[in-house]
């Protein structure tokens, strides 16, 4: 039988994958993908806890997380497009201009 801990372990694995992506990626668009991975991992954990404790609050949190992710993507992609028009690349090393 699948219990709560199964879902939490899967969620932790997916969150770690997203964390690895955030740490090792140097391209801004790929960093966005990695944050989406992490948000989805948290959503799985919320839905699982909501199901096993028979409490809808977790699902509500997941809804608001999805709304926040949508607005984050809208604003973030706008900024990325402006950056790409200005610098011609999305690499973090090219964008770093405040080197001491």
């Amino acid at each position: 039988m699948i219990g709560l801990s199964h879902y939490l372990i899967v969620s932790a694995i997916i969150f770690s994958i997203g964390l690895v992506g955030v740490l090792r990626r140097r391209n801004l668009l790929m960093l966005f993908f990695a944050t989406e991975v992490m948000l989805n991992a948290v959503n799985i954990a919320f839905a699982a806890i909501s199901h096993y404790y028979n409490d809808l609050t977790g699902q509500m949190f997941a809804f608001f997380i999805i709304a926040i992710a949508a607005s984050e993507v809208a604003v973030g992609l706008g900024i990325l497009i402006v950056l790409f028009k200005k610098h011609g690349s999305l690499d973090l090393d090219d964008l770093a201009s405040m080197r001491g």
């Binding site: 949508a70 607005s71 984050e72 809208a74 497009i81 402006v82």
Partner: peptide, 11 residues
Amino acid sequence: LVAMIAGIILA
């Protein structure tokens, strides 16, 4: 709504 306006203006 704020995010939509920001996205339209930025992009």
